[in-house]
């Protein structure tokens, strides 16, 4: 529709006002998104970027094994797999579950110092990988990918943080016991707990990575607690 100024001043002004309002709304929305992105902590921003980069195949449909952890490939020099495998997911369903849990727990940590939080993530990831390598022969052929081991580590870490806070102590103890028992059950049975509740493609569970993650989360907390006994109090300042 085109409106010429000559057809009617009132109609033209109305149309221009509507158009300006639309543009302003679009700009407002873009500013909100940009503000949100620019407002993201640097570590979260990096994690999001890594996840996007490692999961293009979900859109393209061309799934590849070049980013997952495969012991033989890493031995042959494909070291990048050590860093990319936690961010790689086999399907959108898998990504939503693992990344969702990861970001919920990570952003909810009482620890506010970025370097400490990233240390927790890395330590949980390393322990998860080591546990899978030691206790699961299937990793040789199936490899390992996904954030679930780290998510379990963050759950354990969160629980310990809550134990350290008077008001949340009981919840912290219960959640730590539950996550520990869950991983022990999975190690013994060899199966993921409540796996029948899944309704999407999530690959083949190597449940030993959960136990490793929990050990890593507890270990990371103990390391930081030992170094800074009044740690939580420090982080609140």
């Amino acid at each position: 529709m085109s409106i010429s100024p000559k057809t009617g001043t009132g109609d033209y002004k109305m149309a221009m006002a509507i158009e300006h309002a639309g543009q302003a709304e679009t700009e407002r929305r873009e500013n909100v998104i940009l503000n949100r992105i620019s407002g993201l902590p640097f570590d979260m921003f990096i994690f999001i970027v890594f996840i996007i980069l490692c999961n293009f195949h979900i859109i393209s449909g061309n799934i590849t094994r070049s980013l997952i952890f495969l012991p033989g490939s890493v031995r042959q020099g494909e070291w990048w797999r050590l860093f990319t495998h936690p961010f790689f997911h086999v399907s959108l369903y898998h990504l939503v579950l693992d990344a969702g849990a990861f970001f919920l727990l990570y952003s909810g940590l009482a620890e506010k110092r970025m370097i400490k939080k990233v240390f927790c993530v890395i330590f949980s990831g390393v322990c998860s990988l080591i546990a899978s390598q030691i206790f699961s022969a299937d990793i040789q052929t199936q490899g390992l990918c996904g954030l679930s081991g780290i998510a379990h580590g963050l759950m354990a870490y969160s629980s310990l943080e809550m134990i350290h806070q008077q008001a949340l102590r009981k919840i912290g103890i219960i959640s730590l016991i539950i996550v520990a028992l869950k991983t022990v059950f999975e190690m013994i049975s060899g199966n993921a707990l409540f796996s029948s509740l899944h309704f999407g493609d999530y690959g083949n569970p190597l449940v030993t990575c959960h136990a490793g993650g929990v050990i890593g989360g507890i270990g990371a907390y103990l390391i930081m607690f030992i170094n800074h006994p009044g740690r939580l109090n420090d982080s609140k300042r």
């Binding site: 094994r65 997952i68 997911h89 086999v90 898998h94 579950l97 693992d98 849990a101 998860s128 899978s132 699961s136 299937d138 990793i139 199936q142 490899g143 390992l144 990918c145 996904g146 679930s148 081991g149 998510a151 379990h152 993921a192 707990l193 409540f194 796996s195 509740l197 899944h198 999530y202 690959g203 083949n204 569970p205 190597l206 449940v207 030993t208 990575c209 959960h210």
Partner: peptide, 9 residues
């Protein structure tokens, strides 16, 4: 299948 360990719902 890929070796994973997805968190459940």
């Amino acid at each position: 299948s890929f070796g994973t360990g997805p968190v459940g719902p």
